[in-house]
Design a protein around this nucleic acid. Structure first.
Lengths: 248, 248
DNA sequence: CGAGCCATTGACGACTCTCAAGAATAGTGG
DNA sequence: CCACTATTCTTGAGAGTCGTCAATGGCTCG
């Protein structure tokens, strides 16, 4: 059970050190390990997409900018993630380090050559691309028609899944990013994110421990309030059918 | 120059009959041609994703449903599009015919077998997946932080690009889908879509001809109001720097 | 030509954004 | 180790955009 007031460092210590083959990671064998401090940009939107990257440690945010300064975060990267395979000529977005990050890099040519040498990894690559498409689809649904509360709940559920494999407590969520990052990710303002979290705490759905920690108190309620799609509603959640108000 | 009050049939007659090799279309050689009437569903969200489809004629909408009935359209398909390669086990969305559609189908296994037989098409497939990711990214930006006007302008510009290759008049846009489809695609209500179109007409940016036709009167203004990303602002548009009000 | 669906327009309200101030956290230096 | 500062987060009040509800108008097709 997680104590209250844990910080991000303490959470990291709880990460299981499962050194699985991590899929495409082997394609980066013997590539030197690079590091980026929090806030640094690993690659810039619009630059020539020459490299593919594998995250070893830490977290990155994937962002795009509009000409008037508005920022959109289209995703987050963590240990084991590969980024770069879905680009054609130029990077579609920038990748910025949220905390201290270590990663490896390969030129695209070298990456593809490695891939040809190990054709059994080809379906892994395709699978990764498909996951990327699926995640983008979900995000489009979220941004298209979900209320602030639904957006936060969906976001927290996603994070819960990702944390599940990494943290001891299955109800604990680690949020290495700031509230502003979350806001730009779910398409809200920082104030609305903050208010909504406060509301969820007040309803007993979650509780907050420190700036980076959240504990899920009532997962069913979280799933319910996430307003997920017709297809994949959790089977073990068939009660509490209070009809939601349509937001759209 | 397009006359006013043209309908969708008239627009279709102007389509150039360019029988290009159409990329992955060759993988559907000798597959029987199927047809779907307007409104019919070609495949359902949540069903086992057994097949891959190639659109020959007509238009489809790609939709997802939330449990309370809200609908999200994540994309549209037209002649030459392939759909199905980005699924793992189940269809992530339904595909519904907007007008009368003809298409071909192949089982996934057969499709992949064909692909192995013609490995030179593999990069084409990857390229298609990358385009899909790129389109999803753009749509996330649109849904995440754009105003109603910006959404409509972005949508119209996208449509203009697609229409460009198909219609004689380079300023004419064909919108085979209904206002409701547009609304569910750009994350607005039908009323807001309607109001925004009216406003754009009033500003002289576009004009409407019939239910399915739109003519772009001032492309620069359209691009400007689309609020596109920092990276790909049109080079030939460097005037009229009225600072936009931040919507977010 | 008429019926039905789709699109437009209007009035009102709600959700979220904006602006602003205060609280809590984390990092810094003494 | 503690105090101090800067950043981040929370909370509040007011405003604006877009959603909802409702009625009218116009297109398509039978």
């Amino acid at each position: 059970m997680l104590a209250n007031n844990l910080n991000v460092r303490q959470l990291h210590e709880q990460i299981s050190v499962s050194q699985e083959p991590m899929g495409l990671g082997v394609l980066f064998n013997r590539a030197p390990v690079e590091r980026a401090a929090a806030g640094q940009v690993v690659f810039f939107e619009g630059d020539r997409a020459d490299h593919v990257f594998a995250v070893l440690e830490g977290n990155l945010r994937i962002c795009r900018l509009l000409h008037d300064g508005r920022r959109v975060i289209t995703g987050f990267l963590a240990k084991g993630d590969i980024v770069g395979v879905s680009f054609k000529n130029r990077y579609l977005y920038s990748a910025e380090a949220i905390d201290d990050v270590s990663f490896q890099r390969r030129t695209k040519a070298s990456f593809e050559q490695q891939l040809r040498a190990q054709p059994h990894l080809r379906p892994v690559l395709l699978s990764q691309l498909r996951d990327e498409v699926a995640a983008a689809q979900d995000q489009m649904v979220l941004l298209s028609c979900k209320s602030a509360e639904e957006r936060l709940c969906s976001f927290l559920l996603n994070r819960l899944e990702k944390s599940a494999s990494q943290v001891a407590d299955p109800a604990a969520i680690c949020l290495p990013m700031t509230r502003l990052d979350i806001a730009d990710y779910v398409g809200l303002t920082i104030e609305t994110v903050s208010r909504t979290i406060t509301k969820l705490v007040g309803m007993g759905v979650i509780s907050v421990s420190g700036r980076y920690g959240i504990v899920v108190r009532n997962k069913s309620a979280l799933v319910h309030r996430a307003g997920e799609s017709q297809a994949d509603v959790d089977e073990d959640f068939r009660f509490d059918k209070t009809p939601m108000r349509h937001h759209h």
